[in-house]
Deep mutational scan, measured.
Amino acid sequence: SSGAIIYTVELKRYGGPLGITISGTEEPFDPIIISSLTKGGLAERTGAIHIGDRILAINSSSLKGKPLSEAIHLLQMAGETVTLKIKKQTD
């Protein structure tokens, strides 16, 4: 049976990049997913974020019904501590 787990990851960026690339579309209900991780970057080092994971919220702002451009804007405005709500498929 296919299921999913949902969890929250807190990234402290200390002025540096998060080390993630996200992808999606401008269709508001398409998923926003992690499309790549910078090798040795902040997100990869947590061990908790993987390519293909879906981002449900950024700093408690839900991405439900929001296009990719809004998600990118939220990441850019997120500040030093970025909290990502992640949904991972478990097959």
Rank of each mutant, 00 (worst) to 15 (best):
E44K: 02
R45F: 03
S69D: 06
T38R: 05
G16V: 01
G40P: 02
T46L: 08
N59H: 03
G16F: 03
L68F: 09
I58D: 04
N59Y: 04
T38I: 15
I58W: 04
G3I: 11
L11M: 15
T25Y: 06
R13L: 07
M77L: 11
I20Q: 01
E26H: 11
T46M: 13
D53N: 00
L68T: 09
P17D: 08
A4R: 13
L37Y: 12
A57C: 09
P67L: 05
E27A: 07
I22L: 12
I20T: 03
E44R: 03
G52D: 00
P17Y: 04
K12V: 11
G41R: 01
L68S: 07
S61N: 10
A57D: 08
L56I: 07
E44H: 10
A4F: 15
S36H: 11
K39H: 13
T8G: 02
E44I: 03
F29W: 13
I6H: 04
G52E: 02
Q76V: 06
S61A: 13
A57K: 10
R45I: 12
G15S: 14
D91H: 15
R45P: 03
E10Y: 07
E44C: 06
T25D: 01
G19A: 05
Y14E: 15
K39R: 14
P67Y: 06
S69L: 04
L18T: 03
M77Q: 10
T38W: 12
G52M: 03
S61M: 12
S1Q: 11
I55H: 04
P17L: 05
T8I: 05
P17E: 15
Q76Y: 09
S1P: 02
S60Y: 08
G65I: 02
L56P: 01
D53H: 04
S36F: 05
S2G: 04
L42R: 14
L42V: 10
L11C: 00
G24W: 14
P31E: 04
S60M: 07
G79P: 15
E27N: 14
E70C: 07
M77W: 06
E10G: 11
A78V: 07
T46Q: 13
S23H: 14
T21Y: 07
I55P: 00
P31R: 01
K39V: 06
G24P: 03
G79D: 08
L37S: 01
D53M: 02
T25F: 00
Q76M: 09
S61W: 14
E10I: 06
G52I: 00
I34L: 01
T21P: 00
S1C: 06
T38E: 15
R54N: 10
E44V: 03
E10V: 11
I6R: 06
I72T: 15
D30S: 12
I34R: 03
G3H: 13
S69P: 03
E10A: 03
A78T: 05
S35Y: 07
S36N: 15
G24Y: 09
G47H: 06
I20D: 01
L68M: 09
G3D: 15
T38P: 06
G47L: 02
S23K: 15
P28L: 11
R54Q: 05
E26I: 04
S35D: 11
S61E: 11
I34V: 13
R45H: 07
P31K: 10
